[in-house]
Computed example of a mutant assay.
Amino acid sequence: MTTERVRFAAVGCGRVFQRYHLPCADARDAMELVGVVDTDVERARALTADRPQVWTGTRVDRLVQETRPDVISVCTPNDAHAEPVLAALDAGIAVLCEKPLAATVEEARRMAAHPAAEKLLGVNMPFRFHPLLEAFADVARSGAQRVDFTIATPGNRVWRACTPWYGDAQRAGGGALLDLGPHAIDLLMTVFGRSDVVACEVDAPGVEERVRLELSFQGVPATLRIDRAARKLETSVTVTTADGDHVLDLRRNELRLADGTVEAAGQRPELAAISAYFDLLTGAATPHGKVSARDALEVQLVVESAYEHARGANGPLVQSR
């Protein structure tokens, strides 16, 4: 294990940084917050008021020069991922980027193609690291007949970004599918491999709140339903086999098998990818690796194909239920 502290910095210090990246770093004695950049420098200063040693500013190049970080978390709106990620990679700095990789496939390709991306760039898509996923995959891969994935959340009624960018199609790059879909698609591709898009319906062009996506994994049909304006909370994937339904409940951290067996896990799944990446950097025991830029790009290409299907569908856009 390394004896030197990992110098940690961030670009964008809104809700995602405050709730996920910063607590994960603070939980590690080997990591030290040295600087933050935000378009609202007063917010950055207020967030670090009890850390007078932390540098604050608005420019990524100054962050790199002034703080010499070992790793940077990029927690900006989707359309502002590429610039700080590429600047970090150019400087040889490890970087953890929020999902999706970018607001557009073109920017995502640029990021994944950087010579240092394979070594230094990780993406925050945590479900593949869920402690119950391996047990779920064991039953899912043996005779899966169909797959159903549901994500329901009150969305922006509860999750209020510091700046109102989620409703801006250009800044967000899309709606519920690009926002929440990568979590589900990455998990499904981790279990079943590459997928083909069969059909997609969204409830609005530009920034949709509801999605119904039909996929095929080598002939196994899968349906992903996302409702970002729901009145309930649910994140679960069900695989139907000849034995019945096997449910990985990601909200309750439970695996419920068809024979009635229930396994539980205590780890918060939303922190798993950040924890895995920070473990790699700090030399913690048994690191789990990372979601690579190449993997994140493959997921984003599935999302883009789904949007193309939705745009090309005949008739009115249909709300998924």
Rank of each mutant, 00 (worst) to 15 (best):
H81N: 14
A82Y: 02
V85G: 03
A87C: 04
A88P: 06
A88N: 10
A91W: 02
G92D: 09
C97R: 05
P100H: 06
P100E: 10
P100T: 07
A102T: 06
A102R: 08
A103P: 09
A103F: 10
A103C: 11
T104E: 09
R109G: 02
R109P: 01
R110Q: 15
M111E: 13
A112G: 01
A113T: 02
E118P: 00
E118D: 15
K119H: 11
L120A: 05
L120M: 08
G122R: 04
N124R: 01
P126Y: 02
L133W: 01
E134M: 00
A135K: 09
D138T: 11
A140C: 02
A140D: 04
S142M: 04
S142N: 10
G143S: 08
R146D: 14
V147F: 11
D148A: 14
D148H: 14
T150P: 00
I151V: 15
I151D: 09
I151H: 14
I151L: 15
G155A: 11
R157H: 13
V158Y: 13
A161S: 13
P164V: 01
D168A: 07
D168N: 15
G175A: 12
G175S: 10
L177I: 09
L180F: 14
H183S: 05
A184S: 15
M189C: 14
T190L: 02
F192P: 13
S195I: 03
S195C: 15
D196I: 00
V197R: 08
V198P: 06
A199G: 12
A199I: 03
C200P: 03
C200I: 04
E201Q: 15
E201F: 04
V202C: 08
A204L: 11
G206M: 03
